[in-house]
């Protein structure tokens, strides 16, 4: 058995890649994808611990997490559609009306 920390480190790296993407990328769709990355990193963590301790609770939690991720992605894309309708692109950079 691999040490559980290896899986945790992988999940941490994936999470940080997702964070970097959310902070940096310009297109809304790319940002949604990176959000999914972050969620999946959390799921990896859950499965790693569940498998390591041979508990089933972790798997159930992951099921719920995936379903909620899907729901949230749907809503997110619906919002992106509204933005696209008014601006004809989905560059999140340009939505800065609440600036100084």
């Amino acid at each position: 058995m691999l040490p559980v920390s290896y899986y945790l480190i992988v999940a941490a790296i994936v999470f940080c890649i997702g964070v970097y993407g959310v902070m940096t990328l310009r297109s809304g769709i790319m940002i949604m994808m990176c959000v999914e990355l972050m969620l999946n990193a959390a799921n990896i963590n859950l499965i790693a611990f569940a498998s390591h301790f041979s508990q089933v609770n972790g798997h159930v939690f992951v099921l719920f997490s995936i379903a909620l991720a899907a729901a949230e992605a749907a809503i997110g894309f619906a919002i992106l559609m509204s933005i696209f309708r008014s601006k004809n692109n989905v560059n999140i950079d340009n939505i800065n009306i609440l600036r100084w």
């Binding site: 964070v19 959310v22 902070m23 940002i31 950079d93 609440l98 600036r99 100084w100």
Partner: peptide
């Protein structure tokens, strides 16, 4: 100091992280 509020949400995410 007010230049921090750029209005772009991603920058706020950066700040949070």
């Amino acid at each position: 100091l007010k230049k921090i509020q750029t209005g772009v949400v991603q920058n706020y995410a950066t700040a949070t992280v």
